[in-house]
Nucleic acid binder design. Structure first.
Lengths: 222, 222
DNA sequence: CCGCGCCGTCACGGCTTCGTAAGGGTTCGA
DNA sequence: TCGAACCCTTACGAAGCCGTGACGGCGCGG
């Protein structure tokens, strides 16, 4: 994923948020650099500022379009109705008007990746022994029985099973599952407990959703 | 398929997207050229800009209508409520207001082709146990009885049955069935309810058109 | 011209799920 | 062994989500 934005502050914020969301992000300070980067190593999506010195966003958009059909998210100035029109006509897949919340941008980006199916993220089907986590169906099956998970529980389980053996801090999980940057850690604690209730044979002594003392939690492969 | 649009940039983007979607596309820079092309080799669908120099979209639309029943998709300017009304009155099958994303336009075009049965895309016959969805006849049969579905209900059912087991969000369905990019999610909710009324043995506890809490809906294979 | 059917919207009520707080238990290091 | 940090458990209010019924607009056919 490539972020092309001249304002250093904005760029850094955007990039850090996208990285926190689990994306592999490269960045460019202007249109020329962006185009060059895209030629060397094509990205799966481009976040593009409209107003930039040198080659502006529109021109970059046009050239990217002529070279392929990579999805493009435009960053446009507030009230730039005209910009927005031109941008979309040129093939931007979505636009976000400044000022925007980074969180919103991440949402849009994820949505487009999902929509265009070019996300190289986790496979739709995760398995771990007698457990199957099916992202497409939004359903988890344990020993042939469908687990009655709530939305959050499912998200949490999927994330853990997708990275077996790795220990996550509560803050990690808040950021990567909840999408929060601030929040009460006990939220995670409680959800882990509820999840254990449904996933563990004996919830009082977990063997798969293990707690890592002083750190957080880890999914243990069966 | 024919695209009539005076703005070179917009035309190129639209054409390239339609071609990428597997359509055979010819193009014309103005109304006169468009009409002439249609006479020489009639297209199965016309994408038509409303505002054009010379013979404008409305006039082209009128003349096309008098010469046959080719489906027409209008491109109208932002806020052109009046244009939209006039366009539809003249027999456009759908309209897309600028700004639009090229992907959205492709969706609309495909939707219309499917609706008017002028395309041989997805399999015409879907089956799921005692249910048969016949796209060609635009008819669904359950246990040998034809379901009295409305247009939207049929579209919705076909889309769900075509992707059994997959959970769709309301936004997904608005985009993929309605062809909208924005819209009230409750629209989907209500249509699902009405569809259940006709498809489920006990609509109060659905077993085939299942709701996925916090996400959307899913079609459960029989 | 009128009636009918389809569609999109809205408001309401019930229910699920969520986040937080508080208290008790457990683990670790000294 | 003891204290402190950390974790588990429980309960509860609030918010969010879904289903339902009803209404008005619009197009279509009688």
């Amino acid at each position: 994923m490539l972020v092309v934005e001249d304002d250093v502050t904005v760029r850094e914020v955007v990039v850090s948020y996208l990285r926190a969301a689990g994306h592999d992000v490269s960045e460019a300070p202007d249109g020329a650099a962006g185009l060059e980067l895209m030629q060397r190593s094509p990205a799966d999506l481009v976040v593009l500022d409209l107003m930039m010195p040198g080659i502006d966003g529109l021109e970059v958009c046009r050239r990217l379009r002529s070279g392929g059909d990579v999805p493009i998210v435009m960053l446009t100035a507030l009230g730039g109705e005209q910009d927005r029109v031109v941008g979309l006509e040129l093939g931007a897949d979505d636009y976000v008007t400044k000022p925007f919340s980074p969180r919103e941008l991440v949402l849009r980006v994820d949505s487009i990746l999902r929509r265009t199916g070019r996300t190289s993220e986790e496979p739709a089907l995760l398995t771990d022994g007698d457990l199957v986590v099916d992202a497409a169906r939004h359903e988890a099956v344990l020993r042939g029985v469908v687990l009655p998970l709530t939305g959050r529980e499912f998200d949490l389980l999927r994330h853990l099973v997708a990275h077996p053996g790795r220990a996550f801090s509560r803050d990690d999980l808040l950021r990567e599952v909840w999408g929060w940057t601030v929040g009460d850690q006990s939220t995670v604690t409680v959800h882990v407990r509820r999840l254990r209730e449904k996933v563990e044979a004996d919830p009082t002594s977990p063997v798969r959703l293990v707690t890592v003392w002083g750190v957080g939690y880890r999914w243990e492969t069966a």
